[in-house]
Design a protein around this nucleic acid. Structure first.
Length: 585
RNA sequence: GCCGGAGUAGCUCAGUGGUAGAGCAGUGCUUUCGUAAAGCAAAGGUCGUGAGUUCAAAUCUCACCUCCGGCUCCA
C-alpha cells in the first residue's frame, strides 16, 4: 500500500507528530505551519518566552525519540470538517492558527482539522491513515533555523525544525550519503585546501581574493570564454569600475536599484558609484558614434567587474559575493535580427556549458504576470513576440523549459538556465534577457534603410554568470579534481632521489616549453610522500623519475583519476596531454 | 538585516577560573628512499576585538566583528 505517492502524506504527517511532541515538551508553544518540502518537511514554532527556554540542536534527538514512540503507538489521523466558529474556539490559544482561520474564512474555503491522539491541527491534508504506515527509522530531524512568520521580514521570527523523511532507512541513508558527499565538495573548504582563493576579514565580506592557483584557473577560464566570444562575432570592450551619478540616473539604477548599490564616492562635488551592472557603460559605447542598420547586430562583451551591496547574511564563499566579474554581453540589433540573435546566444550558451560536462539543464522562461500588466514596460505585442522568440530559441537548442508567470523583470522577458552538477544539485548559471527599457532611456538609435532614426532592440546575456560563482560551482562539480585543461597544475614531477634531479629538470623544461603546467617536486622526501602531496592537491598526472627512467630515457606516468600507470617517452606524453587539453576532456 | 551555532598556531582540533597544548604544514639536521605520511630537533599564540567581574579570565558578563546553518532579499 505504501507507495511513493504516499511519501508526501508521510512527511506531512511526520510534521504533525513533530508538533505534537514539541507541544508535549513545551506546552505553551504556539504553532506556525508545517508543510512538506523537497526531501522532507518542517514545522515553525513560537516557543514560550520569559523563562528563556529554547530548543537547542541537542534537543532534536529527544524530540525525534518521542516521535518514534508516537509512531509505534499506532495513532490514527482523523479528518474533520468544522465551522469557522468551532475552529476559532478550538484554536483560541493559537494566535497563528487564528490568523490562518480568518484567511480561510475570506476565501470561503472549507476548514478541516486532523486529529492525531490528543493533538489537533488545522490542516487541509492529506495525511496517512495511521502512524503504523511510517517506518520509524526512515526520518531524521536535521536542523534548527529561524524563519519569519509567513516569510515576511516584518513579522516575528519563529523557530523552524527541519526534518527529512523517506520510505525506508536505506533511502534515508542514501540521502545522508549525498549530503556527506556534498560537504566533501564544499567549494569554500576545497578552495582553501587547494589554495585557490581566500576571503579576508580585513579586505571585507564577500570580496574574495584569488591565490596563485585560483588566479591561474580563472585566467584559463577567461581566455576560454574570450576566445568563444571572438569566434562568435562579439567585440570586446572595457569599462571602468565607477561611474558618475549622471550615468546611473539615466539608466534608472538610482531609482530602481539603489538598495543594491554601494554608497557613492564624492569627488569634486560629483558623486561616483561603483557600477552594479555594465549595461549603462556599454550603451555609452554604442552611442559614441552614429550607427547604420548595416552595423547591426553589435555584440559587446566584457568581463566586467561589478559591485553590489548584498545583505551580510546571504554572503557565501564564491557563490554569493559583493564584488564579482560577469561575463557580460549586450547585443544590440534590429527587430528582424532579434530572433536569430536569441537563437545564437542560446546556442553559444549551450556550447559553453557542455564544455564543462554539464548535461542536465533546467530552463525557465520568465514571462509577465498576465494579471498585472501595468507593472511592466512595453506593449503587449512586444512581450508576446519576444516571449515567443525566446521559447523558439530554447526549443531549437533541444531543451525543455518551464514558463514562470510573473517572474519576468519589469523591462522584459528572460530565460534562466540552471545546470545540474555531478551530484545532481542545481545551480543558476546563465541568463538571457530582452530589454525594452535601456534603449529608451539612453535614447539609442540607428539609421535605417529609409534614412530614418530607429530604436534598436537590446539583449543582455551572461553565459558563465559570474566567474566567481561559476568557479565555485566548478569546484563542487568536479570535487576539486579539474580536467587537465583547467587544472592550475597539470603534472607533478617526482624524483626518487637526488641523483635524478638533472633528468627531472630536463623533463620539466620540456613540458614547460610546450606550455604544460608542471611542478618539479625534488624535495628530500619519500616517493610515497610526494605522491600523496600530488594526490591531495588533485593534480591529474604524476610523473615519477628514477634510475629506470633515466636508463630508458622515458618517464613513468600515473593518471591520478584512473590510478593507471604507464611508461612513455616525454615526447609521446607531451603529444597525448596536449591532445587531451585541446579536447577539453 | 533577522533567528540559532561557532571563533584557541598557517590547517584540523584539545583545553570550564590558577604558567596556553597536540597532530599536520613550515624551518634546520639526519636519511637517498619506486607510487597516499621516513626520523630527530628547534620554532611557531594579543586564545576574533573591546570593555567589565575577579587576587587571577581562553574559561564568567556585555557590546561589536567575522564565519557556519537557515529566513528574507537577489529590478
Amino acid at each position: 500500500m505504501a507507495k511513493e505517492s504516499n511519501l508526501d502524506a508521510k512527511r506531512h504527517s511526520l510534521s504533525h507528530l513533530m508538533a505534537m511532541a514539541v507541544l508535549e515538551m513545551y506546552p505553551k508553544t504556539k504553532l506556525g505551519i508545517g508543510p512538506t518540502i523537497e526531501n522532507g518537511f518542517y514545522y515553525d514554532f513560537d516557543l514560550p518566552g520569559g523563562n528563556g527556554r529554547k530548543i537547542a540542536e541537542e534537543d532534536l534527538p529527544k524530540i525525534e525519540k518521542r516521535v518514534k514512540e508516537l509512531i509505534k503507538s499506532k495513532l490514527d489521523f482523523q479528518k474533520k470538517i468544522i465551522t469557522a466558529a468551532e475552529a476559532k474556539k478550538l484554536f483560541k490559544d493559537q494566535s497563528y492558527k487564528l490568523e490562518l482561520i480568518k484567511e480561510l474564512q475570506k476565501t470561503k474555503e472549507k476548514i478541516s482539522v486532523y486529529e492525531t491522539g490528543s493533538f489537533v491541527d488545522l490542516c487541509a491534508g492529506p495525511h496517512i491513515k495511521n502512524t503504523s504506515e511510517i517506518d520509524p527509522e526512515s526520518f531524521k530531524f536535521t536542523k534548527l533555523a529561524g524563519a519569519y512568520w509567513k516569510g515576511s521580514e516584518k513579522n516575528k521570527m519563529l523557530t523552524r525544525i527541519y526534518g527529512i523523511a523517506f520510505e525506508n532507512k536505506q533511502q534515508l541513508d542514501e540521502y545522508l550519503r549525498i549530503l556527506e558527499e556534498s560537504e566533501k565538495r564544499n567549494h569554500v573548504l576545497l578552495g582553501q585546501k587547494l589554495g585557490l582563493f581566500m576571503i579576508s576579514e580585513e579586505v571585507g565580506q564577500g570580496l574574495p581574493l584569488w591565490l596563485p592557483k585560483g588566479a591561474l584557473l580563472r585566467q584559463i577560464l577567461e581566455d576560454f570564454i574570450i576566445q568563444k566570444y571572438l569566434k562568435n562575432g562579439y567585440d570586446l570592450v572595457r569599462t571602468p569600475h565607477i561611474g558618475s551619478e549622471k550615468l546611473f540616473s539615466i539608466s534608472g539604477h538610482l531609482t530602481n536599484y539603489k538598495e543594491g548599490m554601494y554608497s557613492p564616492l564624492e569627488v569634486e562635488k560629483e558623486k561616483y558609484y561603483l557600477k552594479p551592472m555594465n549595461c549603462p557603460m556599454h550603451l555609452m559605447i554604442y552611442k559614441n558614434s552614429p550607427k547604420s542598420y548595416r552595423d547591426l547586430p553589435i555584440r559587446y562583451a566584457e568581463l566586467g567587474t561589478v559591485y553590489r551591496y548584498e545583505k551580510s547574511g546571504v554572503l557565501h564563499g564564491l557563490t554569493r559575493v559583493r564584488g564579482f566579474t560577469q561575463d557580460d554581453g549586450h547585443i544590440i540589433c534590429r527587430k528582424d535580427q532579434l530572433e536569430e540573435e536569441i537563437e545564437k546566444a542560446i546556442k553559444l550558451t549551450k556550447d559553453v556549458l557542455e564544455t564543462f560536462g554539464f548535461k542536465d539543464f533546467r530552463v525557465a522562461l520568465s514571462v509577465r504576470d498576465p494579471k498585472n500588466k501595468k507593472k511592466y514596460l512595453g506593449s503587449d505585442e512586444l512581450w508576446k513576440e519576444s516571449e515567443n522568440m525566446l521559447a523558439k530559441g530554447i526549443k531549437k537548442a533541444g531543451w525543455d523549459f518551464e514558463i514562470e508567470e510573473g517572474e519576468a523583470v519589469f523591462y522584459g522577458p528572460k530565460m534562466d538556465i540552471k545546470v545540474k552538477d555531478s551530484l545532481g544539485r542545481e545551480w543558476q548559471i546563465s541568463t538571457l534577457q530582452v530589454d525594452f527599457n535601456l534603449p529608451e532611456r539612453f535614447d539609442i538609435d540607428f539609421i535605417n534603410e529609409k534614412s530614418q532614426k530607429e530604436r534598436p532592440f537590446m539583449l543582455h546575456r551572461a553565459l558563465l554568470g559570474s566567474l566567481e560563482r561559476f568557479i565555485g560551482v566548478l569546484i563542487e562539480h568536479y570535487a576539486g579534481a579539474f580536467p587537465v585543461w583547467l587544472s592550475p597544475i597539470q603534472i607533478s614531477i617526482i624524483t626518487v632521489n637526488e641523483s635524478h634531479k638533472n633528468y627531472a629538470q630536463e623533463v620539466f623544461s620540456l613540458l614547460n616549453e610546450n606550455g604544460i603546467r608542471a611542478t618539479l617536486d625534488e624535495d628530500n622526501q619519500t616517493v610515497g610522500k610526494k605522491v600523496r602531496e600530488a594526490k591531495i592537491n588533485k593534480i591529474p598526472y604524476i610523473v615519477v623519475i628514477g634510475d629506470k627512467e633515466i636508463a630508458a630515457k622515458n618517464i613513468n606516468i600515473t593518471n591520478t583519476r584512473t590510478e593507471k600507470s604507464e611508461t612513455k617517452t616525454p615526447e609521446e606524453f607531451i603529444k597525448d596531454i596536449l591532445e587531451e587539453i585541446e579536447e577539453k576532456k
